[in-house]
Design a protein around this nucleic acid. Structure first.
Lengths: 345, 345
DNA sequence: TATTTCTACGCAATCGTTTTAGTAACAAAT
DNA sequence: ATTTGTTACTAAAACGATTGCGTAGAAATA
C-alpha cells in the first residue's frame, strides 16, 4: 500500500516547466515572473500539493522537530511540561516527538538513538531514574546535537538546564510540617543518583537541622524505580509504620510516589493526618479532591517546558557554537491542605 | 550549528570502496564477501556510523513512524491508550509521534497536516470535540493514508475502528444508580456531535426507559468544549442544583468532566452521595483516593491502544488495498465506590 | 547596428541511502 | 577454444526538493 502524493515534478510536467522553476515559484523567488508564479501556485493548490518534508529535511539538513524524553506522560507534571514545550515549539514551526523511558535506562538509550541522527534538530530530556551514566548523551553532545536538560539533570554535560528550586521546595515542605508540630518526619524518595532526589533530600535535611531536630537515617526510604512498582512504596511504608518510633509525618517526592502513598495509607486505614501527616511533590490537578485534600509542593511544569524550549531553540538557531550555558531555576509553590494539618487528639 | 554525522560515503572513502559496496555490506548482502563485510562493519562501528533515517525514508518511501492525534495527554485515558500504542509499535520497529488537539478543530487540522505527506506511515486518531466534519481526513483517506479511529470515531470514513462499549458502559452506570435507589438522574456530557456522546447518551436513556423512569430533557447538559473550560461545567452544575426538581444523582462522561464535577461539588460543599450521587467515566488511577471514592466507568485504554495499532500496522503492511473493515468493541468496567452508595437519611 | 544588461527560465549537482544493471576476473564445463 | 557460471565488486539512477550557475531572448544602451 503506498500513499502517493503530488510532487513538484508532477506540477512541472502539467505546466511544461522545469522542476526548478516550479520550486522557485513556490518559494516566491525573484527569478520567476509573476505570471508564472501565479500559474504554479494555482496548479499546486488545485492538485493539493504539499512539499515532502522528508525530502526537505534531507536537503536542508534540519527536520524542524525536537525530541522529548520523559519518564512517563501519565505523570501530570510531565504532561504539563510537554504542553509548555508544545506552546513554544509550535509557535516557531517546530514539531515535537515525545518518547517515554518508564524509568528504564535501556529505554532511554533506545529512545535517544531513535530520535537522533538527523531525525531531530534538538533534544529536551529529563533523565530516567535508572540511568547510571550519561555516556550515550555525551557522544551526541560532543557531535554537536543541541540539548537542554530539565527536571532531572546531570552535571556531567555542560549545556542549558531548567529545574525547579528543589532544595527550597523540600525545605518549605519540611519546615511546614515542623511548624505544624510534627517532629518525626520521614522521607520517601527516588534513588539518590538523580539530581532531584539529592536536592530535595538536602532541603529536607536542612529544614530538620535548622529546627534542631535529629532524624535517624532509616527515616529516609529510597524507591529503586522511582515508585514505578507499587511494591517499592508498600515496603517503604510498612517499614516506617512498624517502627517503634513511627514517624508522625511523611514527605514524599514525585507524583507517582506521592499519589501512591496516599492510596496505600487509605488502604491501610491509616488516618491522615491524625496518624501520619503527608506532604508531597505532585502536580496532580486532583490534590484538592483527594481524601484528605493533599498538601503539595507544586512545580511550574508548563513554564519549565516553555523555558527549556526557548533555550533549545536558541541553541538550534545559533550560528556559532555556544559555550556559555545557563541553569534556570524556577520557584515551587507549597499548597497547604488538610493532609498536613495537625489535629488535636 | 550543524550536527555532522558520519555517512556511508566517509566509510567508502576510508576503505577505498564504492558507496554501494558499503551499503550492501552493512545490509549483509550476499553479493559481498565475508572479508569485506567484516571490514566495513568494523569501520562503521569504529566511526560510530548511524544510517540517516531521513535519507532512508526518502528512498524507501516509508518513515517507520505513526502519528497519533488525541485531545490531550493530560487525560489519563489517553496516556494509557498511548502506552498501549507504543507497546505494539516499538515491538514492530515503529516510532510514534504524539500530537494534541486540546479539543480544537483548527489544531486537529494543523496536526494532521503536520503529520502527513510522507512523514508518517499511518494515523491513529480520536476526533476532537469541536470537529464539525472530517473532510480533512477524507482527502487523506482517499489518497491512501492508512488510518484507524479509536474512542471518538466517525461513520463517514470506512476504515478500522476501536471503541469501548459506550452504550453498555453508560447503561450499566445508570442502571446502577437506579438500582441504588436514585430516581432523578442527570447527565453531564460532551457535545452530541461526537460518537461517544451519542452512544453514552443512548445507554443512559435506555436504562432510564427500561426502568420506566421519566427524565426531563433539561437533565442532560452538554459542555461545548468537552469540559476543557471549567466554566462550562460550573454552569451545568449550577443549573442542575438550582432546579426545583434537583437531581439526586449525576452521571458524567469523560475524565475531564468527571473529575471537574467532583472538584466543583466539593467546592460547593455539596455532599456526595448524600446530596447528589456521582458516577462518571474516568480512567484516573486516583478514583479510590478521591473524596469520596468515586464510582467510575473504566475503559481498557491500554488494550484499545494495542488493538488500534495492530490494525493500523496490518493496513500499513498490506500489499493490497484493504476493503473489509472491522470495528472492535471492548468492554467497560463499572467500579462501584462510595460516591454512588445511597445513604440512609 | 553592435554591444551590454536584464529577465526569466532550465540544467545539473546536491542531501544520504538503496537498488538495478552492469562488468571484470577467474573457474568450470562443454 | 569457447561457452557458461560465479564471485565480488562498481556505476549510476533513483527518492523529492533546493539552489548556484548558465543562457536564450528581449530590452536598453552606445
Amino acid at each position: 500500500m503506498n500513499f502517493n502524493a503530488v510532487t513538484i515534478r508532477d506540477i512541472a510536467k502539467e505546466l511544461n516547466l522545469s522542476v526548478s522553476t516550479v520550486s522557485k515559484a513556490l518559494r516566491d523567488s525573484y527569478e520567476i515572473s509573476e505570471k508564472t508564479k501565479k500559474l504554479v501556485v494555482e496548479c499546486a493548490r488545485k492538485n493539493n500539493y504539499r512539499p515532502n518534508p522528508i525530502a526537505q529535511s534531507l536537503k536542508q539538513g534540519n527536520t524542524k522537530s525536537i525530541g522529548i524524553v520523559v519518564s512517563t506522560i501519565e505523570n501530570q507534571f510531565f504532561s504539563q511540561v510537554i504542553n509548555g514545550i508544545e506552546s513554544v515549539a509550535h509557535k516557531e514551526g517546530y514539531n515535537v516527538i515525545i518518547t517515554q523511558t518508564h524509568e528504564s535506562y535501556d529505554l532511554e538509550v533506545k529512545n535517544v538513538n531513535h530520535l537522533t541522527s538527523r531525525s531531530i534538530d534538538g533534544l529536551l530530556i529529563s533523565l530516567s531514574t535508572e540511568t547510571p551514566d550519561v555516556e550515550h548523551l555525551k557522544t551526541l553532545h560532543a557531535q554537536g546535537l543541541p540539548m537542554v536538560f530539565f527536571d532531572r539533570v546531570t552535571e556531567e554535560i555542560n549545556t542549558h538546564k531548567v529545574i525547579s528550586d528543589n532544595y527550597k521546595g523540600a525545605y518549605d515542605a519540611t519546615k511546614h510540617l515542623i511548624d505544624s508540630g510534627f517532629r518525626r518526619i520521614a522521607h520517601i524518595t527516588s534513588p539518590p543518583n538523580i539530581s532531584i532526589t539529592k536536592e530535595r533530600l538536602a532541603g529536607y535535611k536542612a529544614a530538620l537541622a535548622d529546627a534542631g531536630i535529629f532524624t535517624p537515617d532509616y527515616y529516609i526510604s529510597y524507591c529503586p524505580h522511582g515508585g514505578r512498582d507499587i511494591s517499592e512504596i508498600e515496603n517503604a511504608l510498612n517499614f516506617l509504620l512498624n517502627l517503634e518510633d513511627k514517624p508522625d509525618a511523611i514527605f514524599t517526592t514525585s507524583d507517582r510516589i506521592t499519589t501512591t502513598t496516599i492510596f496505600l495509607l487509605n488502604k491501610l486505614k491509616v488516618a491522615i493526618p491524625a496518624d501520619v501527616a503527608l506532604v508531597g511533590y505532585t502536580n496532580t490537578t486532583l490534590a484538592d479532591v483527594l481524601n484528605p485534600p493533599l498538601s503539595s509542593v507544586h512545580q511550574q511544569g508548563f513554564e519549565i517546558g516553555q523555558k527549556a524550549t526557548e533555550m533549545l531553540l536558541s541553541l538550534i538557531k545559533s550560528k556559532w557554537p555556544v559555550t556559555e550555558f545557563e541553569t534556570v531555576v524556577l520557584p515551587t509553590h507549597l499548597f497547604i491542605r488538610e493532609s498536613s494539618t495537625k489535629t488535636k487528639k
